[in-house]
Amino acid sequence: MAAPALFSKPEQGRPQDGRPYKLSISLRNRLNNIAARVFWLITLIPVGLVIAITVALAVRSAPILQSHSLVELFTGTVWKPFGGQFGFLPFIAGTFWVTTIGVILAVPPCLLTAFYLSEYARPITRNIMKPLLDVLAAIPSVVYGVWGMLVIVPFVQKTFMPWMSSHFGFIPLFASNQPTGFSVISGGVILAVMIIPFIIAIIYEILKTVPQDLREASLGLGATRWETITLVIFPKILPGIIAAIVLGASRALGETMAVLMVVGNVPQIPTSIFDAAYPLPALIANNYGEMMSIPLFDAALLLAAFILLLIILTFNVIATLVLQRILGRRGK
């Protein structure tokens, strides 16, 4: 029997059906080129989408920019669509209030957990805890919202707010100006819980890029684990920690469902953590598609979306660039 030909010609067909036994080289190359082009086109879709959405939002929000000045829109505090008054400041303020509280609450437990898992935990603990944290990230946001309404809001209303106002009520930040628990603190707590697993995962990844030799250099001098963490590892990965927090914040900024369920949705500038607020995503989700007959209402909501998009894109791009530089160093 003859050895199988490595480059059999097309006419050496399979006798049964007469079709070519193997594709010619030129045909194989052409297939390869077609595949490469198709993949390239499909890869372009997400990039195109980001650009298309940004452009569409800019175009659709243009009408309100023509009749109102930017200063008026961004510093205005009155939201009366019927009267043609569109002040976005309460919504922008609400967004940053909720996000800031969420991030402040999230960062300490994130740092402690990530450092524990990476530096102290035994492999078995790590292998159990890490997937559990990832599951936390997979809980749908509406479930967090329901949990917030059932647990967090009543807790804030009945326990936390009365206690704080009786002890720290003289500080404006902790004044209780309204009786319900629907407040920026409730929104912040929910957001914190939602972004915690996300930030932990990133910090943990960054900690894994720290060479074991560096830990040993410190431990070998008689340093404890704690000294090694605070004096060597933490300063080394600080830029990465900041990037992780910014990335978490950009998630929090855009989070809609869970927040709008607990935050009260009152268009005002909060002055206390127990005030209600109305973040941008909640504004859009609650109103878009309704009362669209009001002049400029549609453009105003799309401007809100545009502002939100720009804020989050900025946060994301900065954080991603920093992280890429850090994670890219791995293995070198």
Partner: peptide, 15 residues
């Protein structure tokens, strides 16, 4: 480890 110092294979300066 204070009494027994180690010089590692590769120098590992602290940051």
């Amino acid at each position: 480890r204070k009494r027994i110092g180690l010089l590692a294979q590769r120098p590992q300066p602290l940051p």
